[in-house]
Amino acid sequence: MMVFYTQSQLKQYLQPLKAAKKSIGFVPTMGALHNGHLSLLHQALAENDVAVLSIFVNPTQFNNAEDLEKYPRTLNRDVDLVKELSEQIVVYAPSVDDIYEGNTVATNFDYDGLDNEMEGANRPGHFNGVGTIVKKLFEIVQPNRAYFGEKDFQQLQIIRKMVAKSNMDIVIVGCPIFREASGLAMSSRNERLSTKGKEQAALIYKTLTQAQTVFNDKDVKDAEAFVKKTFESQPDFTLEYFIIAEVESLKTIAFKKPNTKYRAFIVVHLEGVRLIDTIELN
């Protein structure tokens, strides 16, 4: 397994593979790897000749300095996990200077309003940071396919929009959410939860599945009221938002329309950790 710390080293390694028409699958991550990340790598390995994994905690997508500081950094452990999975994976673990070359600022993108909803409304500038790093990584790796988990569904849609508007010849593959046995969506942030917190956090997915039933049997306001009531009865949780939105536009809805796909999105805080999840509704 190869580990590169600079883009020049990575490009030098990948150049002959590209010349030989080998397909490259790419999984960008911020490290603190878990089985959800490994499931993306499994798919990248299955569908491509070469799989590249990046590990980089991107400063321009954090609008909270404390959140950036607390984000887990476990590079040695991550590399060991990847090595156990396959010797065929290439790891790119750059420094901030290698990526941003002394200019650590985000580019402004036009996402046709996708960034104004949900996470964008609550985290100003976040998706400009996401678009900036993903575009830079795509330009460095030049993959045929890139793999993202559906847990960050808004991010997935925004990356698809960025790729289309930038005329990049990359297939963006959305992969199902990988969950703990309890239903808790796997996330690097889960490492900050206590054992009790992880057990409690199973309520998030349980509530989403119940809200899915309420939505399909009744309507939007009934599902919203159910979720609000559920978390009001749980003093350890703080519900930041529960939103039902159209899949394509990510616009919040008030009523169901025929022949339209919807998803529910939720953010809750538990033990000082911000946890997100999402589920298809119909």
Rank of each mutant, 00 (worst) to 15 (best):
M1E: 14
V3M: 06
V3K: 07
F4P: 02
Y5M: 09
Y13E: 13
L14E: 02
P16D: 05
L17W: 04
K18F: 05
K21L: 13
P28I: 03
H34A: 14
H34R: 13
N35S: 13
G36S: 09
H42P: 03
A44F: 01
E47W: 07
D49N: 12
D49Q: 06
V52D: 01
L53R: 01
S54P: 04
V57P: 00
V57T: 06
F62I: 10
N64Q: 13
N64M: 09
A65G: 06
K70H: 12
L75G: 05
D78P: 08
D78T: 10
V79H: 07
V79S: 06
D80T: 09
L81S: 12
L85H: 15
L85Y: 15
E87Q: 15
I89V: 15
P94F: 00
S95Y: 08
Y100Q: 11
V105D: 11
F109Y: 06
D110I: 11
G113C: 05
D115N: 13
N116V: 08
H126Q: 09
H126E: 09
F127V: 02
N128P: 03
V130M: 03
V130L: 04
V134E: 00
V134H: 00
K136S: 02
V141P: 00
R145V: 05
Y147S: 00
E150I: 01
F153I: 08
Q155Y: 10
Q155R: 11
Q157V: 08
Q157R: 13
I158C: 03
R160M: 08
M162K: 00
M162Q: 00
A164Q: 09
K165L: 09
K165Y: 04
M168Y: 13
I170E: 03
I172K: 06
S182V: 10
G183K: 07
L184H: 05
A185E: 03
N190A: 12
L193N: 07
S194P: 06
K198Q: 13
E199K: 12
Q200F: 04
Q200T: 05
A201Y: 02
T207R: 00
L208A: 03
Q212L: 11
T213D: 12
F215G: 02
D217Y: 12
K218R: 12
K221R: 14
A225V: 11
K229V: 13
S233V: 07
Y241G: 10
I243Q: 12
A245H: 06
E248H: 08
S249P: 04
I253M: 08
K257F: 13
P258G: 05
T260D: 08
T260W: 07
F265N: 03
I266E: 00
V268Q: 03
H269Q: 14
